[in-house]
């Protein structure tokens, strides 16, 4: 846990320096006549982040914060697997939206998650995986007129638009 605390703080410190560098692309000082420069606000806030990171590192080194005193692992093997399956399946789903449309991606995601992670019977899995995209389509596209991305599957939806819109 202590190593994770230190690694996160060091990573965030580097990120703060990057934010300061990006903010400094705009003036960070006082511009006569127009007040503080455009980069001043994020620059000094990022500097504040950096100071906090240093404080977190110091506290972790001195074992003053609870995570730095804990002897438990940051993530055991089982948690790591749950995390990788959860976040990984979401990343794949979001990637698929561009190819097989949001509705297709949702269908594939629900089939995978309900069947292989939740171990639900096929009948329930199939019912939920099919009904959810259909309900979402009617709610978002027809009722609220929010068009979700279709990717390469766009032509498949044109007949539906002709009927319902």
């Amino acid at each position: 846990m202590r190593r994770a605390e230190l690694s996160m703080a060091v990573f965030m410190a580097v990120f703060s320096v990057y934010l300061m560098y990006k903010s400094a692309e705009l003036p960070i000082g006082w511009i006569p006549g127009s007040g503080p420069g455009g980069g001043a606000y994020p620059f000094w806030l990022a500097a504040g982040m950096l100071i906090c990171c240093i404080a977190i590192i110091v506290r972790a080194l001195l074992r003053m914060s609870p995570p730095s005193r804990s002897t438990e692992p940051y993530m055991d093997r089982h948690s790591l697997m749950l995390f990788v399956v959860g976040a990984g399946s979401l990343a794949v789903t979001i990637g698929l939206i561009r190819i097989i449309s949001a509705y297709g991606a949702i269908l594939v995601f629900l089939l995978f998650y309900l069947r292989f992670v939740g171990r639900h019977p096929w009948r329930l899995t199939a019912a939920v995986a099919v009904v959810t995209p259909i309900v979402s389509f009617f709610f978002f596209e027809i009722m609220l007129r929010i068009i979700l991305p279709k990717g390469y599957a766009e032509p498949l939806f044109l007949p539906l638009y002709d009927i319902f819109l």
Binding site: I97, R98, L110, Y113, V117, G118, H120, F140
Partner: peptide, 26 residues
């Protein structure tokens, strides 16, 4: 295990509906 994937789906659609930009979903 039934609720979690439904919430994930809601999050993805909700995240997109807010700005209609895939960048925001990532």
């Amino acid at each position: 295990t039934l609720l979690a994937p439904m919430i994930y789906v809601l999050c993805m659609i909700g995240g997109y509906a807010a700005t209609e930009d895939m960048h925001d979903v990532w």
